[in-house]
C-alpha cells in the first residue's frame, strides 16, 4: 500500500487537520508516514500546501514527485488546480470543495475554475460548506472534504473515524459527533458521484 497525497488550501482553512487525521489513521493501521507542512510566511491568507505520504514500506523523500501524486485534496477550488501538475495522469484523483475563498482582487470566475476541474479524468467536486452546515457547522467543511476523499485513500473508514475521535478528543463529544457526521456526508457524496 502506498498513497501520495497533496493537500492544498488557504491559510486557516484546516488542511493540517486533514493531514493530521489521515496521518493518525495511517499510524493506527501500522503504516509508515511522512508529512511535510508549510509554516511561516504563507500562513497569512496565502496559499498553503502539505505533502502527505503513507506506505506499508519505509518512505524516502519528504516531498512527492510532480506527476506521482495519487490524490490532490483541496479545500478551495483554485487551490486544487494549483497542484494538478503533481497528479499521476493515469490514476490521480482530485477532490475539492467548490466554495471559493476570494481574498484577492483578481480571483477568477468560479465557472472557469470548475470548467478546468471537470476536464480532468477523475475528480470529486462538492459544496463542502453546505454539506458541513447540514452536519452542524460550516467549520467542519475540511472534514467533509476528508470524507469525500475517504473512498480513495486506501485506509479503512473506521480508522478515519477513530482518528477523528482521537484528534477532537479534547473538544468534547458534541464536536466529535459533528465531525463524524461531516465525514459521513462527504463520504456518501463521493461514493454516489465517483
Amino acid at each position: 500500500m502506498k498513497k501520495d497525497i497533496i493537500l492544498g488550501g488557504v491559510g486557516g482553512q484546516g488542511i493540517l487537520t486533514i493531514a493530521a487525521t489521515i496521518g493518525t489513521a495511517a499510524l493506527l493501521e501500522g503504516l509508515y508516514l511522512k508529512q511535510s507542512e508549510v509554516h511561516g510566511m504563507s500562513q497569512r491568507g496565502g496559499d498553503v500546501q502539505a505533502h502527505l505520504r503513507i506506505s506499508s514500506k519505509p518512505i524516502a523523500s519528504d516531498l512527492i514527485a510532480a506527476g506521482k501524486a495519487d490524490m490532490v485534496i483541496a479545500v478551495e477550488p483554485m487551490e486544487s488546480l494549483r497542484y494538478v501538475n503533481m497528479l499521476n495522469k493515469d490514476t490521480g484523483w482530485l477532490i475539492t470543495s467548490m466554495n471559493p475563498f476570494a481574498n484577492i482582487p483578481d480571483y477568477p470566475a468560479i465557472e472557469d475554475l470548475l470548467k478546468e476541474i471537470w476536464k480532468l479524468p477523475r475528480y470529486i467536486t462538492i459544496d463542502a460548506e453546505k454539506t458541513a452546515k447540514e452536519a452542524g457547522s460550516i467549520r467542519a467543511a475540511n472534514i467533509v472534504i476528508l470524507g469525500a476523499s475517504a473512498p480513495f485513500i486506501g485506509i479503512k473508514y473506521q480508522s478515519l473515524e477513530q482518528a477523528i475521535r482521537k484528534i477532537f478528543a479534547k473538544k468534547g463529544e458534541d464536536l466529535i459527533n459533528l465531525n463524524l457526521k461531516a465525514l459521513k456526508l462527504g463520504f456518501d457524496y463521493a461514493q454516489k458521484h465517483r
Binding site: 497569512r44 496565502g46 501524486a69 497528479l87
Partner: peptide, 20 residues
Amino acid sequence: EVEEGFEIPSVIKGRPPVLC
C-alpha cells in the same frame, strides 16, 4: 525520464501572503 501531471491551467492566480 519523468512525466509530470496535468498542465496547470492559466486561470490560476497567485495568492500572496497579506497582513491579516
